[in-house]
Simulated assay, not measured.
Amino acid sequence: MSRAEVLEPGGGGGDPADGRRGAGAGAGAGAGTRPVSPLWTFGLFRSELTTTFRRWRTLALLGVLAAVPVLIGIAIKIETSDGGSVGGGGPEGGGGPAFLTQITNNGLFLVFAALAATLPVFLPMAVGVIAGDAVAGEANGGTLRYLLVAPAGRTRLLLAKYAATLVFCLAATLAVAVSALIVGALLFPLGDVTTISGTTISFGDGLVRAVLIALVVAASLIGLAALGLFVSTLTNSGIAAMATTVGLVITVQILDTIPQLHGIHPYLFPHYWLSFADLLREPFYWDDVLRNLGLQGVYAAVFGSAAWARFTAKDISA
């Protein structure tokens, strides 16, 4: 479904004059318009999803993310083939190095190592680009006001954009995880999984945990997605919104590493990102995982509300 097809529930583009009035007033629906059907709302979401994933920028981001596990796997294979050993890190560290030491024994650990390597930098930057461009890119391209010709209103449009961004969060995470699983299976043996606690579980159970970890990693990005969407409503420049969102990610990551600011660390959205490693314990250790998900929910609520308040008052008639 194209952008033009979702401008009206019946598939027509509507009267351009009505669109200009709706865009200027921000109402999205004037007197006498037909009620918005759930199918039309789904069509709007599908249009946003299609638009997002048909862009070359999105495909390039997914390609780069999928390439990271390939580079990690090849580097480890070359290093071990030359008689070297993969860098250390104790099992209680729960970060990338702890997983790296296990990859040569079980290729499934490449999934965990790749997610640990991409979550602090690559994944949030990719999400920041998509979220930052969601509204500002449309405004800069002059298409935002035409989207509001339809009687969906700004709230539905904003929700559709946020939902499309969340789908990208999941797609980006799966691009890393699936690529890592394929590369790990090709370069290294697969078998029973040794957990961080030192116990052994079957490969099937380990695969289930890998899927669960991928879902948790994707959910860890929902707060950032809302923050990026809010930034996107503040400007009509897509590049400025993307740069600001990525800059905020870097700044908050730096703040999270300064010991003197330990008091605010638990309130920073990336603080519990690597807590997904606790899902490789036996039994699961949920405390930090739930703290992470709760914190992401708070960020999503706060910045999602801020984005809605800004977007509903935003003048996009120019």
Rank of each mutant, 00 (worst) to 15 (best):
M1S: 07
S2F: 03
A4K: 08
E5Y: 05
E5P: 06
V6K: 04
L7F: 02
P9K: 02
G10C: 12
G10D: 15
G13W: 07
P16N: 03
G19H: 02
G28V: 02
A29K: 04
A29N: 09
R34C: 10
R34K: 11
S37K: 08
S37F: 10
T41R: 15
T41C: 14
G43P: 03
F45C: 08
S47D: 10
S47I: 02
L49G: 00
T50G: 14
F53N: 11
R57H: 11
T58L: 10
A60Y: 05
V64E: 07
L65N: 03
A66Q: 12
L71W: 12
G73R: 00
I76H: 01
K77T: 08
D82L: 15
S85N: 10
G87K: 14
G88C: 02
G89S: 03
G90V: 05
P91S: 13
G93N: 10
G94S: 04
G95F: 07
G96E: 11
P97D: 00
L100V: 05
I103Y: 01
I103S: 02
N105M: 11
L110R: 02
V111S: 04
A113I: 04
L115Q: 06
A117H: 04
L119F: 10
A126T: 04
I130C: 09
I130M: 12
D133R: 10
V135Y: 06
V135Q: 05
A136N: 08
T143H: 06
T143V: 09
L144F: 11
Y146P: 07
A150E: 04
A152V: 09
G153N: 00
R156V: 14
L158E: 01
L158P: 01
L158Y: 01
V167C: 13
L170A: 15
L170I: 14
A171H: 11
A175F: 10
V178E: 03
S179T: 11
I182M: 12
I182W: 09
V183Y: 04
A185E: 10
L187Y: 04
F188I: 09
L190G: 09
G191S: 01
G191L: 00
T194C: 05
T194R: 14
T195F: 06
T199D: 15
T199P: 13
S202W: 00
S202Y: 00
G206L: 00
L207F: 07
R209N: 07
A210M: 09
L212P: 06
L212V: 15
I213D: 00
I213M: 08
A214T: 15
V216K: 10
S220K: 01
S220A: 13
S220R: 03
S232Y: 06
T233Q: 13
L234M: 14
S237C: 06
A241E: 03
A243D: 14
V246N: 11
G247Q: 12
T251R: 12
Q253W: 13
L255E: 05
Q260L: 14
Q260K: 13
H262C: 10
G263C: 09
H265D: 12
P266Q: 04
L268E: 08
P270R: 01
Y272G: 00
L274N: 05
P283C: 06
F284K: 14
V289A: 02
L290M: 14
L293Q: 07
G294R: 11
L295Y: 03
V298H: 04
Y299Q: 01
F303H: 03
S317D: 12
